[in-house]
Design a protein around this nucleic acid. Structure first.
Lengths: 259, 259
DNA sequence: TCATTTCAACTGGTACTACCACTTTGACTA
DNA sequence: TAGTCAAAGTGGTAGTACCAGTTGAAATGA
């Protein structure tokens, strides 16, 4: 009921403003995910222990700043923060023209995933670990039952994303997300090839298990090492695949795939 | 073939938002003069024929846009209109109100700059080194002559950018660029503070020289170590500055109490 | 059976009232 | 004269009631 408001600002912070702040923090932490709807005003107001009036003022503030989008009768959705990181245009062009950029991307991703795993092991909460476990088990189970490469890629992505979110670094999360979207949008087909090869699949599964155990076991250094090794492995595999394909079809499978 | 123009206006404008517009118009017309107080909420609400709730939401919008300034128990005054046009991006606010995000960003930047320096030392061409040298010398020279913090920041940025470009990883370059734009647009003032402090400046110059020498000398590991240390140092300095500013805020509160 | 209509239960938008917290002012007191 | 303090003004919150779009599932029609 009574919500303590701590502050050290010049002027006393109004409840509605600090509310807006709290909501933003929730978005940054990933509790409220970009693109997803947020609870209704009545629910939120009750859950946060404030009147709907004041909750509305807070939402108004977020809305004015473009953080959320609201429609009468439907609800509000998170529009996402850090829009400047939508690097779509410039880089999608690059991918079309120079497929090798994929390895450059994986080079960056290797760094970021490693750091994310480190931080996740270091400052992830029990709830984070719960989500990670859930994603991991879903991935393992699907790996035994189904052979659908698309689903595998999705679960893979989900697993890595839960880990990055456990890092509690929103900039890291959003950057990785941007890179992943870029990758999935442009070269999904090639990535899927990985899951068709038994040797690759086994290796990937082993890496995933290493990452998972290290994070859950709160072993930051191991987690980082496992994650970087994982991405590096993916990168090398893709390189092999590409060379193979080039041998088979000199004239570019790539461009067809990327178009 | 004539297409009604206003068909795209699917969403009705909420009363509170249009109210905010009307109030802004009143300010533009001079009815509400800059610096002067505006009528109380109760008066305004009655005069405009709306509920006080909705009037408050409108004021909240103006307040969020920096058009008016409100104090509990006193009232609201017009701060002036059109303060900053490009303020639109939520990031400016985000970084101002959530300083932690800045450290999150620098945490990511530390990784990327380190890797960029490593790669630059490893696979940079002579031409790259030429550009880096050019940028480095310009920075050093300006450091002795001028004390313009803005120019210093620009040259600093240019130096780091030439290095990242020497990494020949476009994804890395682009990601770093995005992060830098984010930072410069939002917290330029704070960053500039760094160049005002002699001790900071000396330390920064030393780090830059270390990075430069390591890259030019083709010492990837040293380059990486120097670059990460550099960014980490910046991060810690900014933390100090922020804490200082918070102390200043509190002391100014004391003055107010004594007066 | 399938397409259509209808309606109930959501959602956000607006109004009104009562009260709390802060600031200013000025009359009253010491 | 200097200090006290209470009233009246201000913005801040809470709560209720109702209006207005949206949705989806049950009821209806062909």
């Amino acid at each position: 009921m009574v919500v303590p408001v701590e502050m050290s600002r010049k002027r006393p912070v109004s409840l509605s403003s600090s509310l807006a702040r709290r909501l933003e923090q929730l978005i940054l932490d990933g509790t409220l995910k970009s693109g997803k709807p947020i609870p209704s005003e009545r629910q939120l107001a009750e859950r946060l222990g404030v009147s709907r009036n004041i909750l509305r003022e807070a939402l108004k503030e977020l809305r004015g700043r473009g953080v959320i989008d609201t429609q009468h009768g439907r609800g509000s959705i998170v529009k996402g923060l850090v829009p400047n990181l939508e690097q779509g245009n410039a880089l999608t062009y690059l991918f079309r023209e120079h497929p090798r950029t994929l390895y450059d991307l994986l080079e960056v991703r290797e760094l970021l995933e490693g750091r994310a795993a480190y931080l996740a092991a270091d400052r992830g909460t029990e709830e984070d670990f719960h989500r990670i476990t859930h994603a991991f088990e879903a991935m393992e189970q699907a790996g035994q039952e189904s052979t659908d490469p698309v689903r595998s890629a999705q679960l893979d992505h989900a697993f890595h994303q839960t880990i990055s979110e456990a890092s509690h670094n929103p900039v890291l999360v959003h950057t990785l997300q941007s890179l992943m979207e870029l990758m999935l949008n442009s070269v999904l087909a090639s990535v899927n090839n990985l899951y068709h090869r038994e040797t690759s699949k086994k290796q990937i599964d082993r890496h995933h298990r290493q990452i998972y155990n290290a994070v859950i076991g709160r072993q930051p250094d191991w987690a980082q090492k496992a994650a970087t090794a994982h991405i590096r492995n993916v990168r090398e595999r893709l390189l092999e695949i590409e060379q193979e394909e080039q041998r088979l079809d000199r004239s570019s499978d790539w461009e067809k795939l990327l178009r």
